[in-house]
Design a protein around this nucleic acid. Sequence first.
DNA 1: ATGGCTCTCGCGGAGAGA
Length: 256
Amino acid sequence: MRIATWNINGLRARLELVKRWLIERQPDVVGFQELKTLTEEFPHDAFLEIGYHALVHGEKAWNGVAILTRAPAELVQTGLPGETGFGSRLLTARIQDLEFTTVYCPNGKTLDHADYQRKLAWFESLTTHWQHLERSAAAVLCGDFNIVPTPLDSWQGKKADGEIFHTVAERERFSALMGTGLTDLFRHHAPDEQAYSWWDYRGGAFHKRQGLRIDLILGTRAVRDRLESIYIDREYRKKQGDLTASDHAPVVAVIK
DNA sequence: ATGGCTCTCGCGGAGAGA
C-alpha cells in the first residue's frame, strides 16, 4: 500500500500536475494540503476519471485539505475540534483497517505575530485530539507540519535554531505530539539523511539544495512495523513543461 | 538582507506562504 502527503499550493493551479503524478505514482491513499478551493468546487470528476475518490474539507482562497483513495473511504473527522475558526486544516478517513489523517498545520508567520501563539495552541489541540483516538490501531498522521523537527531537517542546520519553524516552543509541541506514540517514518527509515520536502520559490533555492523537511508522514507502531520504504518525490518539485510546481514535494511511503 | 516567487481575489495591488 502506497500512502502519500503533498502540499500542492492551490488545486486549480496544480490540477494537471497532480493528475499526472497520481497516474505515474499510483498511490493508494493521499493527503493533500493547501487546496485553496471551496469544498463544493472540488473537481471530483477529474479525479474519478483516473480512479480516485475524494473526501474534501475546503475553504475559499486559503488552507483546505483532501484525502484521495482508490476505493470510497469512510469520513471520520472534519476539522480539528476546538480550532475550527483557524482554517480548514484537518481531515480523517478510514480506509480498511487504516485510520488516515491529513493536516495543514498553521504557519505562525513571525514570532511576534498573534498567529504564532495560535499555532502553538493549535498543536496542543491536535495532541489532545490525537490522544482521544484508539492508539493500538494502525493510524497515519501526515501533512505539512510547518515545524522543522531537528537541525538535520534544515539546510541551515543549527544556524536556524530559534527562527520561526525552528523554535524550542514549536519543537516542544511537536515532541508532545510524537509522545502520543507516533514515529516520523522518514527519519525512522533514514536516521542520518539530510533531506527536504520544501524549497523557497525564490533565488533558485531548490537547485541550491536550500530546503526544509516539514512535510511528514507519522505513524503508530502498527504502521511503523509495516514500513517498507519512504521517499521524497523531488521530481515533482520541478516544473514540467508549462506546468508549474508547488513549493513542496510529495512524500511517499510504502507499507506492507 | 529588507520576501528576490507563486497563489488567490478580482481587476490593482496586496496578503500569505515558510
